[in-house]
């Protein structure tokens, strides 16, 4: 078990290193010169050269990469070419809003998706099952920015229950934070909830047809016991897999959702940095996203072993 974990961890680190290499090289290949961008278009050749020297752009590529990586591991991604602030500060300032929306979205998807899928799977072909299937199809088909606009128009403008835009840090009051986070989180969670519900339903239907379920019922397991002790755990593997895959696409979706709800989070930061050719920020953003995806995959892998003891050996 421990060896499996260590090996898995090693693979994760290698993936992360490869991402770092690719990110670094892509930036080298990207059009535009960071030094020119920094000093402005009417600077003299000498000024540009001075900037190049200062940024270390005249060093060999390998040395540049080594320096960059060494600093990055310590959380130093350099300074923003645009604002002259440390990149890590910009990231840390933007992160809480994005993390809040994403984590709440994940919770919504897990609770709602698993519940709806389980109910549908247990009552196969009932009205509840058909309802869940219909909603799931809708949830997957509707683009999240459109759902976001719909939610805003109903809950913010028509009903006036929730704020339409903006973000309030959790330190300024949990209630206020939640009121700002709940709509974007719902819009973001919709497709994932639908996918999780479909996978859960499929898993439950499959597990219910297994002989060990019949055997457990023959021992007197009631419906509730059966679901708690046998059905949920056995149908969890495809659900966890989908959860991992969807978490990764959640990070893409959050960019659009932040724009719809006027929240300045990581997604907004990434887009403005691309527009401004602010390479250090883009690099840091890509590495951070890769790190999150890799960690999620690692957790999914570990959970396989927890769910199915046979995987452990």
């Amino acid at each position: 078990m421990v060896i499996r974990l260590l090996r898995r961890l090693g693979i994760s680190l290698v993936s992360l290193f490869l991402v770092a290499v690719v990110v670094f090289l892509l930036m080298q290949a990207a059009p535009g010169d960071a030094a020119e961008a920094l000093v402005g278009s009417d600077a003299t050749a000498a000024e540009v050269e001075a900037a190049r020297e200062r940024l270390g752009l005249n060093e060999p590529l390998v040395v540049q990469f080594g320096n960059w990586l060494l600093a990055a591991v310590q959380g130093d991604f350099g300074t923003s070419l645009y604002s002259d602030r440390p990149v890590i500060d910009s990231l840390l300032a933007a992160a809480p809003a994005t993390i809040s929306i994403s984590v709440v979205a994940l919770l919504i998807a897990a609770v709602l998706g698993v519940t709806a899928g389980t109910v549908a799977g247990l009552r196969q072909n009932s009205w509840a099952d058909r309802g869940v299937s219909l909603l799931a199809t809708l949830g997957i088909a509707m683009p999240n920015f459109w759902v976001g606009l719909l939610l805003v128009s109903v809950f913010a403008f028509d009903l006036g229950w929730l704020p339409a835009t903006g973000y309030v840090p959790i330190e300024q009051g949990f209630g206020d934070w939640l009121r700002h986070v709940i709509l974007p989180a719902f819009a973001l969670a919709l497709a994932m909830t639908a996918e999780v519900a479909r996978q859960t339903r499929g898993g439950v239907v499959d597990v219910l047809s297994r002989p060990y379920i019949l055997a457990a019922r023959a021992r007197g397991a009631s419906r509730g016991w059966l679901v708690r002790k046998h059905v949920l755990r056995n149908s969890a593997i495809p659900v966890v897999t989908v959860f991992g895959l969807q978490s990764a696409s959640l990070l893409g979706g959050v960019v659009i959702i932040e724009a719809v709800f006027g929240i300045s989070g990581l997604g907004t930061l990434a887009i403005t940095s691309v527009v401004r050719q602010d390479y250090p920020v883009i690099q840091a953003y890509v590495v951070l996203v890769a790190l999150i995806v890799i960690v999620i995959n690692l957790l999914v892998d570990i959970s396989y072993g927890w769910i199915n003891p046979k995987v452990r050996s």
Partner: peptide, 24 residues
């Protein structure tokens, strides 16, 4: 019936491997 199965009537089925829950 839940109360009778397992207490008054015990059952053994054909395929032992698939009659056991692999996660328990």
């Amino acid at each position: 019936m839940d109360a009778l199965r397992g207490s008054v009537v015990g059952s053994v089925f054909q395929d032992p491997m698939s009659s056991l829950d692999p996660t328990m």
